[in-house]
């Protein structure tokens, strides 16, 4: 399995040989503005995200992490380069098909949860299904099952305001997973949570990343959760400057690496050429 691949130096975030990656980014450039105010945020990104892995995307603020996430999600168009998501050349899809593709294959977890305040937990989780036309009754039933999976079976009828931050993020995870996405994109999922809840959320995401045919990308600043990743890609000033694997003892739930662990991040083992 690709997660067991030995650590090795790769070229600018490329995955070593193996099955096709979930995300393949080559030479991606993204700028904002024009003329004198033009700012190039992504300056030729090369990165692969493998199936069955949880990739942590780290780096300084303003380095382009969120932009890269938006590009991979097909939310922002790229200026140059190549981007394949789940084998589909995303930039070549027209807007409507891109939206549909995103809705059917990707799940999102946001820093601020972005739950609809008027909806109960079950209704919030059902939203992605409702967007794609699933009958409400069926959607709610599946949403309840998913909430049980994330340990919120007794909170299905609670509105977000009645839930703690950790519970809200678990609702967001359930919402992201209910449509069984193959690619889970998480933007600072633990930023609004305390340490303990952050560890719990990451444990859930790590399990999702382990499930076959799925990949998880997590943007984070939180060094306490680095050990949950399979690999860590460091993005600085619009470039991937380093990609390294996390030792299995840290990343696979081995003793000392469970959800409560707050060990410092492992030392880099790989670097781009």
């Amino acid at each position: 399995m690709e997660r067991d691949m030995p650590t090795a130096t790769v070229h600018a975030g490329e995955a070593p040989e193996g099955p096709p990656p979930a995300v393949r980014v080559r030479g991606v450039v993204k700028s904002f503005g024009a003329g004198d105010t033009k700012v190039t945020v992504l300056k030729g990104i090369d990165l692969d995200v493998r199936m069955g892995e949880l990739l942590l995307l780290v780096g300084e603020s303003g380095g382009g992490k969120t932009t890269l996430l938006s590009v991979i999600a097909g939310i922002l168009d790229i200026d140059a380069g190549q981007l394949d998501v789940l084998g589909v050349p995303l930039p070549q899809l027209p807007g409507g098909k891109k939206t549909t593709f995103r809705g059917r294959t990707m799940g999102f977890i946001f820093q601020q949860f972005n739950l609809l305040p008027a909806l109960t937990a079950a209704e919030n989780v059902a939203v992605p299904l409702l967007i794609h036309g699933t009958p409400k009754k069926d959607a709610i039933r599946r949403a309840r099952t998913m909430l049980e999976t994330v340990g919120l079976g007794d909170r299905t009828e609670f509105v977000p305001a009645k839930l703690s931050g950790g519970q809200q993020q678990r609702v967001a995870i359930a919402r992201a997973l209910v449509s069984e996405p193959r690619l889970l994109i998480c933007d600072e999922p633990t930023a609004a949570l305390d340490g303990e809840n952050g560890q719990k959320i990451m444990a859930i995401l790590r399990d999702v990343g382990r499930s076959p045919g799925r990949a998880v990308i997590v943007v984070t600043h939180d060094s306490r959760i680095f050990h949950f990743g399979d690999r860590i890609a460091e993005l600085t000033d619009g470039r991937i400057v380093r990609v390294h694997s996390v030792p299995a003892a840290h990343s696979r739930g081995a003793p000392g690496a469970d959800a409560a662990s707050t060990e410092p991040p492992p030392a880099p083992e790989e670097s781009p050429s």
Binding site: G103, P128, I131
Partner: peptide, 16 residues
């Protein structure tokens, strides 16, 4: 707006 943005990110079209 953020909620609508989230819906859009989750695949809801502008038309929807």
């Amino acid at each position: 707006l953020k909620q609508f943005g989230a819906l859009k990110a989750m695949g809801a079209s502008t038309f929807a």
